[in-house]
Structures are given as C-alpha cells and as structure tokens.
Lab assay of single mutants.
Amino acid sequence: MSIQHFRVALIPFFAAFCLPVFAHPETLVKVKDAEDQLGARVGYIELDLNSGKILESFRPEERFPMMSTFKVLLCGAVLSRVDAGQEQLGRRIHYSQNDLVEYSPVTEKHLTDGMTVRELCSAAITMSDNTAANLLLTTIGGPKELTAFLHNMGDHVTRLDRWEPELNEAIPNDERDTTMPAAMATTLRKLLTGELLTLASRQQLIDWMEADKVAGPLLRSALPAGWFIADKSGAGERGSRGIIAALGPDGKPSRIVVIYTTGSQATMDERNRQIAEIGASLIKHW
C-alpha cells in the first residue's frame, strides 16, 4: 500500500482519535458579512469528516447552483462504474471539434489522439474542462443518470439537468442544476469515506481534487503551510461562485467545507476574496 493510499485508508482512524471539535460562531459572522459585502445569498456548511456531524452552517438547506462543483460527483459516478466493471479508466475516447464547448483548455489539445477516461476526469476536476465533463456525462448516460446515481446514494436534493455550459445559467428560483450545502457536503463525505467506492477509487477521487489547479484564489489562499486540501470550485452566471473541499491540518483532511453564493453584482475577484476570507476565519478558529 502506498503512503497516499495509507493516508486515505486511515482518515477515519486518525479522526477518531482527534480531540473533540467545537464550532466557532466567528466564522458564521464572516459568512454573514460576506453576504453584506456581496449583496447576495451565501450558503455555508462545515462537517466533521469522521462523524458527519454538522459543526457550523448557514442557509444549509437553500438551493444554490452547483456550477462546476458537480464534476466531482460526476467522476465519482464514473469511478463507481469502474468498480462495477462497467468502465475502464484506460479506455480512450475520441471526439471532434464539434464536441468542444466553451472553456476546454485540455480537451482542445487532444482532438487528434483523444483522451482516456482517467485523463478526462483529471481534466474535468483539476482544470474544470467543460468538454471533458460533457464527454464523461455521455459515458454514464447524461445528466439524468448522474441525478439517479445521487438518488441511489441517498441524495434526493442534488440534481443535474443540463450539460456544460448551460448548467451554469443560475436563474433565480430555478431548481435545475442545483444542490443544497448540506446535501453536497453529505454526498461528498460519502464519496470520500464511505463504502460506495473502493479504496482505490476513493484515493483516485481525492487525488484529482488535491491536484486542483484553478481554485488557488479561494480556500487555498488562506491555508497555512502543512495543511491538506482537496477541492473543486465552480463559477456561473449572475454572480455565482462555489467551492467544495476536504481539508485539515497535519497533512490530512478532517472536515468537509461547502460554500456557495449566487445573485451578486460583485466582480469575480471580490467573490473570490470573500470566500478566501471565510476560509481564513475557519482556519483561525479551527
């Protein structure tokens, strides 16, 4: 067993022997301040990774656009098919120029040779490549099948209805392509620590998230040296922004954090800054 596999296998073990965790309302004060600064709703939840206990939450059962955070769930569904012998990570998928959609920095470079399922998941999570996500959605049967996968996990809230990039439209009061912070946090925890996926697939999923290259201005910008984070960000229309993450000190994750916002007129930089400040408060009061 590799060191990384050992780390993920012992996530519940280490967490069980940690000192009790206590909620700190100071972080919620910052979440509410972010709402004021952005002029928009902000949803927040913080779960203990081992027990699933909610440590703090704000608007945990209000719907927010998922945006690209759905790509972690998508690759979880792909990995479940791999575990069941219905898919192979090494299978190569070929596609054409007509398949390319807006923001496809990886797939646009491989029109000639195609990409493997493993490479597509890596591109979808680490670079948020939209064509990679659409190609992977095709392998599982489309958005409705991802929703069905989530329902089978016990998540009857999260739903995907459309493809990239239309799913980022974020129309107010439109339930399409949305989740709730509580539902997303619980589902992410199941994917990373539950028995739904094999140990190898859980490790692969967290490795992809740990290698995320496009979430630097968010929670990662607030992390002290030595902290662990595996995350996936999302951005959408109407001032929408979000991030889902597993993080913790001492090089291992111990909490799940989900943050979503929508309806702001603020710039992307300002949305990023507010999420980073929430992260800084979380870490300060850990």
Score class of each variant (00 low, 15 high):
I244L: 09
G242W: 00
G154V: 04
S264Q: 06
K32M: 15
L38K: 06
N272L: 02
T126K: 07
L150V: 12
R118G: 15
A23K: 05
Q204D: 08
R92F: 10
Y260W: 02
E210L: 08
A182D: 10
K252P: 05
S240V: 02
V117N: 04
L49C: 08
D48V: 05
D113C: 09
T261I: 12
L73T: 09
N130W: 00
V21R: 06
K109A: 14
A183G: 07
W286Y: 07
F6I: 09
A9K: 12
E56P: 01
A148K: 14
V214H: 06
D83V: 03
R63P: 07
E169Q: 13
T112R: 15
P25F: 08
E56A: 12
R92N: 09
K30G: 05
L188D: 00
A15V: 14
F64K: 01
A84I: 11
W208D: 05
A132R: 00
G154K: 07
L89M: 11
N272C: 04
I256R: 00
L47C: 09
L49I: 13
A280I: 14
V157D: 15
G239F: 02
L247G: 01
I3C: 10
T262Y: 15
G85S: 10
L146G: 03
I283V: 12
K32P: 01
E164R: 01
L223F: 05
G142E: 05
S233D: 00
E61S: 12
T186M: 15
S68P: 00
H285F: 15
M66L: 12
A211R: 14
M209C: 06
D48M: 06
T126M: 09
G39L: 11
T131R: 02
P12K: 08
D207E: 14
K109T: 13
R271S: 09
E277L: 11
T126G: 12
A280N: 13
R255N: 02
I140C: 06
L120D: 00
V42W: 09
L219M: 09
K53L: 13
Q88S: 13
D231K: 04
A9L: 07
V42D: 00
P60Y: 09
L146H: 02
T147K: 08
T112S: 14
F70C: 09
R273S: 10
L111H: 09
F149I: 10
V157G: 09
L247H: 01
N130A: 03
F149T: 08
A183R: 09
A185L: 02
K53G: 11
F22T: 06
I171R: 14
L10C: 10
S254P: 07
V157N: 14
G114W: 04
A246M: 15
K32G: 09
R59T: 02
T27N: 05
S264N: 07
Y103L: 04
P65D: 01
H94C: 08
E26I: 14
V31R: 01
M268N: 07
D113W: 07
H94N: 13
S57R: 12
R91W: 04
A230Q: 02
E102R: 11
M1L: 07
A215E: 04
N272F: 02
A123L: 03
V21T: 10
I278A: 02
M209F: 03
I243P: 00
R7P: 11
L28P: 05
I171T: 14
V157I: 12
D207G: 14
L188P: 00
A182Y: 14
G154T: 05
T179N: 00
E166S: 15
M153V: 11
